[in-house]
Lab assay of single mutants.
Amino acid sequence: MTSCHIAEEHIQKVAIFGGTHGNELTGVFLVKHWLENGAEIQRTGLEVKPFITNPRAVKKCTRYIDCDLNRIFDLENLGKKMSEDLPYEVRRAQEINHLFGPKDSEDSYDIIFDLHNTTSNMGCTLILEDSRNNFLIQMFHYIKTSLAPLPCYVYLIEHPSLKYATTRSIAKYPVGIEVGPQPQGVLRADILDQMRKMIKHALDFIHHFNEGKEFPPCAIEVYKIIEKVDYPRDENGEIAAIIHPNLQDQDWKPLHPGDPMFLTLDGKTIPLGGDCTVYPVFVNEAAYYEKKEAFAKTTKLTLNAKSIRCCLH
């Protein structure tokens, strides 16, 4: 018999989150649709729960009410004593943790798909938090293969000092899905179709896995975050240069030392320094102006996964 890495157990509980950011409308629209008619997301033997994560922000069509829901799922915020004085999103995070967690427990949901849009030209993107997770690498390989020839990129946010504390991190297997470009507060049919297909293929993978299909060893190309880059700023902290036209919409493309990065209003080009080629992502993302992030630098690498098969009882 072929030796293989056996994944822990079959997958039982899956959640699909929309509206973690209330103005990213593809996930909101799909989740609302699936709450009314969820036939397309159901798979035999699998509990799939669509869920609106930040209903107040969705109602106002804004990213958040008090603070970013997708950055506060750490033990400090989840452990705060519940009171009306807490920011709305912290209270909501505790409610979500109660419903789908608790985080880092045996009772937490197996998989959470968190649906997002970006204003950046990132196409279909899967966000991975753990480079050693054979199950998710296999799932992402399946999704990428199923979507081809449509490109699907994998963004690895594993980093020693950049801690995200994402909404989906309460699950055993957290999956971020990011599709763009799409303006905030807008629905685009092409973007919706791409996100819908990503979810379909992900659920198909889980179904095949649960039925005992063995997935042979595989490898995927990923883009691992190195650092986030702020806009150049003046002495008052105001933005002093904008994304250069040569960099705009060039997510995932190589940016070499000396290539144009920013452009000042008086026409001066600010190039990339250093001696390493990087791959920019979230270029000129609207939501990241407040976070002082013009783009993120990534490096390209390959992740390998062992063969996996479900432990059938």
Rank of each mutant, 00 (worst) to 15 (best):
A241K: 02
A287L: 07
K253W: 05
L192A: 15
L247E: 02
N210G: 04
D230I: 14
I206K: 00
E106L: 13
A296F: 15
Q42T: 10
K291L: 06
G273E: 08
H201C: 15
N284S: 10
N236S: 07
I177L: 07
E293A: 10
K213A: 13
P174G: 15
T119P: 05
E211R: 07
V186F: 01
E76N: 15
H313W: 13
F17Q: 05
I226M: 12
P50C: 10
T145A: 08
I72T: 07
Y142G: 00
Y231G: 02
C4E: 12
K224Q: 14
T2N: 12
K200H: 12
K172W: 03
L25D: 12
V186S: 07
N117T: 12
E89Q: 05
K59P: 07
A219N: 14
T167M: 13
S3F: 07
F282Y: 12
P160G: 09
K59L: 11
V229P: 01
E8P: 12
L303G: 01
P232N: 02
N134V: 07
E211F: 13
C124E: 02
W34G: 03
V175R: 01
W252P: 01
E129C: 06
I143L: 04
V58T: 10
L25R: 08
G274T: 05
A171L: 03
P245L: 02
C276G: 11
I191P: 00
Y155R: 15
K297M: 15
Y153V: 04
V31Y: 00
A39I: 11
C276D: 14
V14Q: 01
Q250N: 14
K228I: 15
E178F: 10
N133D: 06
D85I: 12
C311R: 10
Y279Q: 01
I239T: 07
L128A: 03
A287V: 09
R233Y: 07
L263C: 11
M198C: 15
F205W: 05
Q138V: 02
I11A: 05
C152D: 00
K163P: 14
V229N: 01
I225P: 07
N23H: 13
Q250H: 08
D259V: 03
P87Q: 13
G18H: 00
T302D: 05
I11F: 08
H33G: 14
N37Y: 12
V28C: 13
T44W: 09
C310G: 12
